[in-house]
C-alpha cells in the first residue's frame, strides 16, 4: 500500500500551482510532513490527491490510479481534513462525526459506527465535547471535531491540511500522537501540511519540502531539513540544533532578504 505521484500538474482554473510533480514512492505506515512557504501548493497538493481538483499526471495509491476510481471508492480510501475549521453551528460534535460515518462508511452497522465514534472521541481525548454544539466551542475544539470526522473513517490514506493550526501545545502533541499511532498500527499513510518544522522533525518519517520554484524534495527530516534548504526555500537563516534530549530542532534566526534592526 504505497502512494506514488508521477508528473502531476494541478491548480485552479487557468493557473497551475505546481507542474510535473514527481515523488518517490511513499511506503505504507508513513507519516509525511508537507512543508513550504505560503502559497507554494501544500493545500493544492492535498486537495488534488483528495480528488477535489482536476489533475494531469498519475497518482497511484495501493496500485490504483486515484484519478480513475469512483467517488464511492475514493471516500473509503482517502480521508481529507480541509484547512477551514468546521462551522460554528448548532450541531453537536457527536452528530458531526456520525454524519461523516453515515456518508463514508455505509458498510458499517450502527453498532460498528457507534463503537468507532466512541473510540475516536477517546483517542483524541474529546469525549466531554460529544454533546456540545459546535457553536459553543472554541476554534481549537472545532478543529478536534473536524479531525475526528476524518480519523473515525479509518481510511488508509489521510490528508490533513494544517491539523494543528488552532491547537495549543497539549493538543498538538495529542493529535500528532494519534495520527502517528494510526499510521504505525494500521499501515496507513498520512500527509500532514504544516508550518511547524519542529513537529515535523519530531513526529514524521519523511518530510516533503515544496519550494516556490516548483521543486519538491522528499526524504527523512534529518536529510531534508538543512540550513541550506531552509535558506533556499524560506529565505531564512536557520540552524538545526540538538535539544537536551537529543532531538533535532530548527531555530530560525533571521530572514535573509529583509533588513535586520
Amino acid at each position: 500500500m504505497t502512494l506514488k505521484l508521477q508528473s502531476v500538474t494541478a491548480g485552479y482554473r487557468n493557473r497551475s500551482v505546481f507542474t510535473g510533480l514527481t515523488l518517490p514512492e511513499i511506503p505504507a505506515g508513513s507519516l509525511v510532513a508537507v512543508v513550504g512557504p505560503n502559497a507554494v501548493g501544500k493545500s493544492t497538493l492535498l486537495k488534488s490527491i483528495a480528488g477535489l481538483l482536476p489533475i494531469a499526471g498519475t497518482m497511484t495509491f495501493a496500485g490504483e490510479n486515484l484519478a480513475a476510481i469512483t467517488a464511492h471508492q475514493r471516500i473509503r480510501r482517502v480521508g481529507y481534513l480541509p484547512q477551514p475549521l468546521p462551522q460554528a453551528i448548532p450541531l453537536v460534535a457527536y452528530e458531526t462525526v456520525f454524519s461523516a460515518c453515515r456518508s463514508a462508511r455505509s458498510d458499517w452497522s450502527r453498532e460498528e459506527t457507534e463503537l468507532a465514534i466512541e473510540e475516536i472521541f477517546d483517542t483524541l481525548g474529546i469525549r466531554q465535547l460529544a454533546l456540545r454544539r459546535l457553536s459553543e466551542m472554541s476554534g481549537g475544539q472545532r478543529q478536534m471535531v473536524g479531525l475526528a470526522q476524518v480519523l473515525v473513517r479509518q481510511t488508509p490514506l489521510m490528508l490533513l491540511d494544517e491539523p494543528t493550526s488552532a491547537l495549543d501545545l497539549h493538543w498538538q502533541l495529542n493529535v500528532l500522537n494519534a495520527v502517528r499511532d494510526a499510521t504505525s498500527r494500521t499501515g496507513s499513510i498520512a500527509l500532514v501540511a504544516s508550518h511547524d518544522l519542529n513537529l515535523a522533525l519530531r513526529y514524521c518519517d519523511q518530510v516533503l519540502v515544496l519550494s516556490p520554484g516548483g521543486q519538491a524534495v522528499l526524504g527523512s527530516p534529518a536529510q531534508v531539513l538543512t540550513p541550506e534548504l531552509l535558506a533556499e526555500t524560506y529565505g531564512i537563516e536557520a540552524r538545526i540544533e540538538q535539544c537536551s534530549r537529543g532531538h533535532p530542532i530548527v531555530l530560525a534566526d533571521r530572514p535573509l532578504s529583509a533588513s535586520v534592526n
Binding site: L52, Y80, L81, P82, P86, A104, G146, Q149
Partner: peptide, 9 residues
C-alpha cells in the same frame, strides 16, 4: 458543517 469536508465525502 463545512463545504470542503462535504465535498471530500
Amino acid at each position: 458543517s463545512g463545504e470542503e469536508q462535504a465535498r471530500s465525502l
